[in-house]
Simulated assay, not measured.
Amino acid sequence: MTDLIVVAIASLFAGLIDAIVGGGGLILVPALFATYPGAVPATLLGTNKGGAIWGTAWAAVQFTRRVSLRPQTMAPAMLAALLGSFAGAWAVTEVDASLMRRALPLVLLCILAYTLARKDLGRHHAPRFAAGREAAAASGIGLTIGFYDGFFGPGTGSFFVFLFVRVLGFDFLHASASAKLMNTATNLAALVLFTWKGHVWWQVAAVLAVANVAGSLIGTRLALKHGAGFVRGVFIVVVGALILKTGYDAFLR
């Protein structure tokens, strides 16, 4: 019972952060590994997906009720993200991901530096493309980051947010709303694979799901209330934390 309380609290905070800008796995995954040190890693990752997908999906629904997104853009982009995630999950069984582990903190550092240098980045919603070209660009983002999520994973939500801001011209609020839809698709693909392999503790995942949705509700309300500037600030903090965590894992651990 104590273990469940600990991971439920972690799931609540993960849902809160994830709803605003992504990166909830930075909280929940280490909590699961610390609480259940003897468990198979794939089972803990599958259980994480089994709980986190509900908070992500809840946030996606809440955002789309308040933030206007083009269905003709998001539908093909979500499909591309789902297919990319399946492909990435297959690729990780065939290719060593150690190079990705070392490159990730450097890529994140570049994203953080660019965001800090461009003070106006993501503060105003000014889509760059017409519907057809926007759908194509969003699908390219979905396929690429979906593949990354299936192959490796850390920082997926932050990558989605940054690329929707930088490439499509969204503000951080619209980018975060879009990222929730994309993350729901990639999480679903991963969850199907983990379930197929028998790597989900559903009794734990159910508790995580309830807590994650509660945190997602809080995070979504904060993001919608305070707008793009607030989301940008949280994005900078989360990417900074991801740099420290992934850098430690890649070079010091």
Rank of each mutant, 00 (worst) to 15 (best):
T2M: 15
I9Y: 10
G15C: 06
D18M: 06
I20T: 05
G23N: 12
L26K: 12
I27H: 11
I27A: 09
L28R: 12
V29R: 08
G38Y: 14
A39Q: 15
A42L: 13
A42E: 15
N48R: 02
A57H: 00
W58F: 15
W58E: 04
A59E: 02
F63Q: 02
T64R: 13
R65V: 03
R66H: 11
V67R: 04
L69S: 03
R70M: 04
P71R: 09
A75K: 12
F86W: 09
A87I: 00
G88I: 01
V95K: 10
V95H: 12
D96A: 13
A97G: 05
R102W: 08
L104I: 10
L106A: 13
V107T: 06
V107W: 12
L109V: 07
A117E: 10
G122K: 07
R123P: 02
H125I: 04
A131E: 15
G132S: 13
R133W: 12
R133F: 09
G142N: 03
G142W: 03
T144Q: 09
I145G: 03
G146R: 01
G150E: 06
G150D: 05
G153S: 03
L163I: 02
F164D: 07
R166D: 13
R166H: 14
G169Y: 00
F172T: 06
L173K: 08
H174D: 10
L181P: 05
L188W: 10
L193V: 12
L193N: 13
T195F: 12
W196T: 04
H199W: 09
V204K: 09
A209W: 04
A214W: 07
S216P: 04
K225I: 11
H226S: 12
G227F: 13
G227P: 06
A228V: 01
A241L: 15
L242N: 07
I243M: 07
L244T: 02
K245Q: 13
R253E: 14
